[in-house]
Simulated assay, not measured.
Amino acid sequence: MQQDGLILELQNGNQKAFERIYELYSESVFGIIYSIVNDQKIAEEILQDVFMKIWENASSYNSSKGRFFTWILNIARNASIDQLRSKGHKNRQKNLKAENFVDILESSSNFSSKTDAIGIQKYIDILKPVCKKLIDLLFFKGYTQKETAEELKMPLGTVKTRNRACINQLRGILVEK
């Protein structure tokens, strides 16, 4: 079955289509979620939530607004960031033992493994260092634009402008390929 037909079947409530979509996308979606939350158990829980949202909100997907995989990744990214910002997650982070911080510091600085999880590392490598940093903070670490401005010690307006320019540059690279 073609992807468009599969999506249409999903939107019509076909459970087999949903199962097929899970088979096709769950591994990639898990990689994105894990790269954001850095916890296997939490990533597995979020993955299940993401696919429940896909099932429940399939009718809201509109192919004229973007690719299906992008729609799924946005759901996964938002769910992961929501988890990071939740009180429960923040309380768990406060209770971590000292040895856990080594892993957190090493994994949070490993931007290339995160971009590799979705197969865009080779395209990100082409970008300027400031674009790499902006994309890492805004899209992979879940920073707000204000938090990114504070982290990079630059005005909020500059972050917004550079972010737009970097995304446009990345989009141009991807379109060429």
Rank of each mutant, 00 (worst) to 15 (best):
F68T: 11
A79F: 04
A76D: 06
Y61G: 08
E56Q: 10
V102S: 10
L105V: 12
D125G: 00
E99R: 07
Y25A: 04
K122G: 07
D39H: 11
I42S: 12
A43C: 05
E176M: 07
K141L: 13
N57Q: 14
V37L: 08
N14S: 11
I126S: 05
G142A: 09
F101D: 10
N12E: 11
D82R: 03
D39P: 03
I124G: 06
E23L: 03
K177H: 14
I167V: 14
T161N: 12
Y61C: 09
V29W: 01
N12C: 05
N91M: 10
S107A: 10
I126V: 15
L138K: 05
R20D: 15
V50T: 14
K160W: 00
Y143P: 05
S109R: 09
Y22K: 05
F30D: 06
L24Y: 04
D116S: 14
K153Y: 08
A58I: 04
W55L: 12
E176Q: 14
D39W: 00
I33S: 02
E19I: 03
Q121K: 13
E99S: 13
R164N: 11
L6V: 11
F111A: 15
S28C: 00
E19D: 15
K87V: 15
G13E: 12
Q145F: 03
Q145H: 02
A98D: 11
E45S: 13
M154S: 05
E150V: 05
D4F: 00
L138H: 03
T161F: 00
I42F: 00
G5D: 10
R164S: 11
N74I: 12
S28K: 14
I7R: 01
N14A: 06
K90L: 13
G31D: 06
D4I: 09
K97S: 12
E150R: 02
M52T: 13
E106V: 09
I21M: 04
Y34H: 12
K53C: 08
H89T: 13
Y61S: 07
S26P: 12
M154V: 11
E27V: 09
K65F: 08
A58D: 08
A98R: 06
V130I: 15
Q93D: 12
S86R: 08
K160I: 02
L152Y: 01
I7W: 01
F101L: 15
F139A: 04
A79R: 06
R67W: 00
F140Y: 10
G172N: 15
Q2K: 13
I124E: 05
D136C: 00
N62M: 08
I42M: 10
L84K: 14
E27I: 08
Q40M: 04
N95F: 03
Q48Y: 02
T115W: 08
Q48A: 12
K65N: 13
I46T: 07
S107K: 13
H89R: 11
K153C: 11
